[in-house]
Amino acid sequence: MSRTMHSCFVTLAILFLWRVEEVAEACSCSPAHPQQTFCSADVVIRAKVVGRQEIDVGNNIYRNPITQIKYDIKQIKMFKGPDMDIDAIYTASSSALCGVNLETNGEEYLITGRLEADGKVHVTLCQLIGTWDSLTETQKRNLVQRYEMGCDCKITHCTSIPCSISTPAECLWTDWVIEKTFVGTQAKHFACVKRNDDSCAWYRGAEPPKKDFLDIEDP
């Protein structure tokens, strides 16, 4: 629980979230490309949310009750995670503590989270949480193979020009300086993939990356 709270209270602006306007002022997260969120997550699934309940998890130092929200889910597909079905996810009860508010009407979501030692999956607003329909077709394809292919690559966030990479194993993420959004073209349509020579480059295409590919290919 303490690791979850610590990860939420970082100093930079919120990153790639479809419902960023719902994030409370007390919860902010470091900017990250969706591929980075995929690579850092223990669990990445597509699931329906079918139930919600508030559960007691104890008291704080002031003896005030601490609650969490448990969402019952029906797993549709696992892109990354343990060899088991996930039937519930847990989050803080307040958005100020990075708690996630999900609809319980059978809406399908892409959910990324952390697998705790007790086997529970915990999610926060700092992770990639969004409705399945809000994903681009390229993002959906990238979840199957391409994001994982680039987990050894480093995605460097460009905050102002000039900016550059320091090693061939980096991809420069320029959505903010070019489009003034973290949900720009590179976030929506590109994956940073490792080449055979261990260098990394942005890739956009309908098929798995070729042996040698350009930074940009037609979808």
Rank of each mutant, 00 (worst) to 15 (best):
F38S: 08
V57P: 02
V57G: 05
A26Y: 04
Y71I: 08
S94L: 14
D87C: 03
D87H: 08
R63M: 08
A92I: 06
A96S: 14
Q68W: 13
I73Q: 07
V43L: 10
K77C: 05
N64F: 15
I76E: 12
K80W: 14
I69M: 06
A24R: 04
C98K: 09
S40R: 13
G81C: 14
D85S: 12
F79H: 15
S95L: 08
I73K: 06
Q68I: 04
M78P: 07
A92F: 14
N64C: 05
A92W: 14
I61V: 07
V23Q: 05
L97M: 15
P34E: 03
Y90S: 02
I86P: 13
D83P: 00
K48R: 13
F38R: 09
A41Y: 11
P34N: 01
I89T: 13
C29V: 04
I76A: 08
P31N: 04
C39W: 10
P34A: 00
A47P: 12
C27L: 02
T37R: 12
V50N: 05
P31Q: 09
C27K: 01
V49D: 04
M78K: 15
V44C: 06
P65S: 05
C29P: 06
G51R: 01
R52G: 00
D83S: 06
N59D: 11
I66Y: 02
K74S: 15
S95W: 09
L97K: 14
F38M: 11
K48P: 00
M84C: 07
I76M: 14
R52C: 02
R52L: 04
V49L: 05
I86Y: 11
Y62I: 06
G81N: 12
M84I: 12
S30N: 04
F38A: 09
